[in-house]
Design a protein around this nucleic acid. Sequence first.
DNA 1: GTTGATTAGCGTCACGTCCT
DNA 2: AGGACGTGACGCTAATCAAC
Length: 112
Amino acid sequence: MQKPNMAVTGDETAATGDMPTYQIRAPTALPQGVVMAASPGSLHSPQQLAEEATRKRELRLMKNREAAKECRRRKKEYVKCLESRVAVLEVQNKKLIEELETLKDICSPKTD
DNA sequence: GTTGATTAGCGTCACGTCCT
DNA sequence: AGGACGTGACGCTAATCAAC
């Protein structure tokens, strides 16, 4: 599936300064099946330069595709982790509220 | 069965940050 | 400075679901 040209909003900066915990630098590794082509030193004609540019772009797109997949996977994992933490805290909170009510009952003066 | 809304996943672009 | 990388934003598609 190939997309038509993307609309660019110019409103995409997301830099907030604080890095999410799921952002971890991975060691550099070439995606499977990627082979390095001729070194730039061996290029001559404009056509070869164009081919090299195309190759570089495709390599970049391929790497970015994989990076995006990995990024989404980590983000899902991170969200899952947050959700389970929420669940734990909710249970804890409920228990504390119940305990508070019990203590209130014990400590409140008896009316008669 | 059709249709519109919602959701999940994907590819790409733009940009910030890190590293050499 | 420039390349590599991670990620937010965006548009697109396919799957699912509810209402008709």
